[in-house]
């Protein structure tokens, strides 16, 4: 029944697109959010959609190791890392993002611009990826850029971590879109690195919280010590 198969194929393609759109939307939501705990929850949601996207792609392409990667996604990124971060947030004195360097409406506008930039960048590399996931490529790149923007524009250390993790999620989507995922051993290594990085971030956050009253940006240090900022 070729017609039926075509229909399924179409539905799968649509499902992948919808999931990637949700991923992008949750990144925008992180940009718009000021409560630290909500940022972490939004990140968990984003990772959940990422795992779901990977599952649909695995189903559509028949690349079975993606199921495994999707499972790791649910386990590590959607459950374990948010747990670590929520604990870290509970210990903090200040639970909201202080006055961001760029206010939220203009942040959202800038992220819209980054989205267009990502579309532009992904045009020349579109043809080397498989057709099915063509559109997710630009979305993955956009999420990477938005994650970078979060890291640069926010002052709170927790938001910076969420920005970093958003970048990693964007990278995963990008890799899934362009090659149906990297070889399993590399994928495992990347997951391991992210998990260890999240743990180290958590420990450093505690230590900084202990030595400094509240987690302050690195810049303010130089004025006190009187050294030249790079």
């Amino acid at each position: 029944m070729p017609v039926f198969q075509e229909l399924i194929h179409d539905v799968q393609g649509q499902a992948i697109n919808v999931c990637s759109m949700f991923l992008l939307l949750s990144s925008f939501a992180i940009v718009a959010q000021r409560s630290l705990a909500s940022c972490v929850s939004l990140y968990a949601m984003q990772s959940f959609f990422l795992g779901f996207t990977a599952m649909v792609v695995a189903n559509a392409s028949g690349v079975h190791h993606l199921y495994f990667a999707a499972a790791l996604n649910f386990l590590i990124k959607a459950w374990l890392i948010p747990r670590i971060l929520h604990r870290a947030v509970d210990r903090l004195n200040v639970k909201r993002e202080v006055e961001p360097l760029v206010n939220i409406p203009s942040s959202l506008l800038i992220c819209g611009g980054l989205m267009i930039l990502a579309l532009y960048f992904s045009q020349p590399i579109k043809q080397i990826g498989p057709l099915l996931t063509n559109d997710s490529l630009a979305l993955g790149l956009a999420i990477v850029f938005i994650g970078c923007f979060i890291m640069i524009s926010r002052r709170k250390l927790v938001t910076q971590i969420v920005g970093f993790l958003t970048v990693e999620n964007g990278l995963f989507l990008l890799a899934t879109a362009i090659t149906y995922g990297m070889p399993l051993i590399v994928e495992l290594g990347v997951f391991f690195d992210i998990l260890v990085a999240a743990l180290i971030f958590g420990v450093l956050l505690h230590r900084i919280q202990d030595t400094v009253e509240s987690a302050r940006p690195a810049e303010s240090r130089f004025e006190e010590v009187g050294e030249v900022a790079p």
Partner: peptide, 19 residues
């Protein structure tokens, strides 16, 4: 305080860059 801030900066900038 200074060394922890340096470690934070190191971790954030290098991890982001290497992404």
């Amino acid at each position: 305080e200074a060394s922890l801030q340096a470690a934070w900066r190191y971790l954030i900038i290098c991890s982001l860059g290497i992404s």
